[in-house]
């Protein structure tokens, strides 16, 4: 078993169009590094110098990973990680 990662439309250019890919790692950070080794460039779209990008939502199973330690959140085989771009904007 591996960790299933669900990819939003806007990032499927990195995964050859795949809606869902598999990866491995003990933390979210390691999982993203593993994905980046096969889908080069995807890490940069999820993470910046200070951690997860502010306008990217990452969920571990049913929880926002921001409440689980962010990049340090532990992950394991059988988990599902869902990435959704935040829907946001403003009048300024």
């Amino acid at each position: 078993m591996a960790i299933e990662v669900r990819i939003p439309t806007i990032l499927r250019t990195f995964t050859g169009g795949a809606k869902s890919v598999e990866g491995s790692g003990g933390t979210l950070d390691e999982l993203i590094a593993d994905l980046d080794s096969r889908y080069a460039g995807i890490r940069d779209r999820l993470v910046d110098g200070s951690g997860l990008r502010r306008f990217v939502n990452v969920y571990l199973n049913d929880e926002d990973v921001r409440f689980l330690g962010g990049l340090e959140a532990p992950v394991r085989d059988g988990d599902t990680v869902t990435v959704l771009p935040a829907v946001a904007g403003g009048s300024r």
Partner: peptide, 12 residues
Amino acid sequence: PTFYRFDSMEQL
């Protein structure tokens, strides 16, 4: 009044 962002859990 000048910004919006979907609630992340509701969005999921």
